[in-house]
Design a protein around this nucleic acid. Structure first.
Lengths: 146, 146
DNA sequence: AGCTATAATGAGAATCGTTATCATTCAAGA
DNA sequence: TCTTGAATGATAACGATTCTCATTATAGCT
């Protein structure tokens, strides 16, 4: 999906909810389109050189999450990073550096993804739990911290 | 591994580091042995009916993590939950309820686990990243929230 | 058993990420 | 243009976590 069509999809989604695709929200989305992994509020704040106030960033994140445009990344100690939801970025997994905490996206090929899916379904069927999504986090050391 | 031998292993590990296996630390470990999923500082605090002050719990968690006895659970927004490290509890995965946030352990059979391992290794070999561990988080709704 | 050195504790202050408040600004539609 | 609700910026409030420091407890020595 091209960056322009992404913005279009997102604007549509917001308008459906009677919300506006304002510049703060666009900035957040644009940064996350470019980024190679999820970002936290303060990382975004730095990214913008402080031009967008933190309170606006937090509010944008809330709105974008509520409308299903962003998804929180389950894999961080102490802070919350966000990424584009799967319908916008496709399914993927993460590397998490145990030293610096950096998170990087990883693509998975279909063969492997199918086996993970099978596993998730099989496991869930054995217990009272309805699976909606899954996330494989690979913990290790990134190139910089190795 | 029996509960008693677990405590023994842990005490040894602490003594190697010239640290003591005090009652606060024992309480934390005991609670995590019993629990069916990772717990946060305040959940532990409640578990103990407030008898162990929060500051002690936090300090115990830090010490136990530094010595490799506990591992932080990567899968929670806003707070940190801990569980026994893998050498004490064995490898497993998690269900995370997207409504109430509860986390529950899930066992994985060898067949599936091997395919996940293969996938992790294969992926990591393609990028500059040294894998140390992995965590499969299954997000969904638990029985209570379904 | 008593001493001593140091680990560990308890209580509270301080910090950090995040959320809520409120007056002001902006933008879409009449 | 005017109106109305959405969005903003600044700041206060909040909850989770960490730090500080004076006090207590414990292992090792005599």
């Amino acid at each position: 999906m091209t960056s322009k069509s992404l913005h279009g999809e997102i604007e549509n989604r917001l308008v459906e909810h009677e919300l506006r695709y304002t510049s703060a929200r666009k900035s957040v989305v644009a940064a996350l389109i470019t980024s190679d992994g999820p970002l936290s509020a303060s990382e975004l704040h730095d990214e913008f050189g402080g031009s967008v106030p933190l309170s606006s960033i937090y509010r944008s994140l809330v709105v974008l999450e509520e409308t299903g445009i962003l998804a929180p990344h389950l894999g961080t100690k102490g802070l919350t990073r966000y990424e584009l939801a799967e319908w916008l970025r496709g399914h993927h997994h993460h590397f998490v550096c145990i030293d610096c905490g950096a998170v990087e996206d990883v693509a998975v090929d279909d063969t492997h993804e199918r086996s993970v899916d099978a596993m998730v379904n099989e496991i869930s069927s054995r217990v009272a739990f309805t699976p909606i999504n899954h996330a494989l986090e690979i913990e290790g050391r990134c190139a910089r911290c190795a």
